[in-house]
């Protein structure tokens, strides 16, 4: 099971955190500080796994961002690398060659996408196309709601003129 997902920039800024096991706010801060220290200082050629507090942390760097997932001792580390890549590819398709800024300004979208890939720390969908379709469908629901709202407020505005 994946216990948490972290996206941390090369400067150590947190871009996304998702916790599937209960961690208090204090623990979360501590975990982030500890792990970013470990990941950011590891050399480029080293393996992508760090043993940490009886768990394993699998991380991979994409451009300026470190994607990191914490798993149990007996989980498949190589598969987690694939899941991270799966997530990155979906982000890439959604944003159109994703960059860190996309994830900063549209952080909520990144969360929505992650929620279509993982639930309860387990993989939910192995098809990138399906994820993209589900996200698009929900985005369009939001768009429709927005348009309705603005047309209603236009009607109200005109009526009260």
């Amino acid at each position: 099971m994946i216990h948490f997902v972290l996206l941390i920039s090369r400067q150590g800024k947190v871009r996304l955190t998702k916790w599937y096991s209960p961690y208090s706010q204090k623990e979360r801060t501590k975990v982030i500080r500890e792990l970013s220290g470990v990941m950011l200082t590891r050399g480029p050629k080293l393996c992508n796994f760090v043993e940490w507090r009886g768990y394993k942390v699998v991380y991979k760097r994409y451009a300026s961002l470190y994607f990191c997932m914490c798993i149990d001792q007996d989980d498949n580390e190589l598969e987690i690398l694939e899941i991270i890549h799966h997530f990155v590819e979906i982000l890439d398709r959604y944003f159109g060659s994703v960059c860190e800024l996309d994830l900063i300004f549209n952080f909520h979208k990144a969360y929505y996408i992650l929620d279509e890939i993982l639930i309860a720390g387990e993989l939910q969908e192995s098809s990138k196309k399906t994820v993209a379709r589900l996200i698009a469908a929900q985005d369009s629901l939001v768009e429709t709601a927005k348009e309705q709202a603005s047309s209603i407020s236009n009607i109200i505005a005109q009526a009260t003129k």
């Binding site: 969360y111 929620d115 939001v142 927005k146």
Partner: peptide
């Protein structure tokens, strides 16, 4: 739906089971 979507996201982010 938009309110619920952001509401659930906030719930998962700002709260935990305890």
């Amino acid at each position: 739906f938009p309110e619920k979507r952001i509401g659930y996201l906030g719930l998962m982010l700002l709260l935990d089971e305890r």
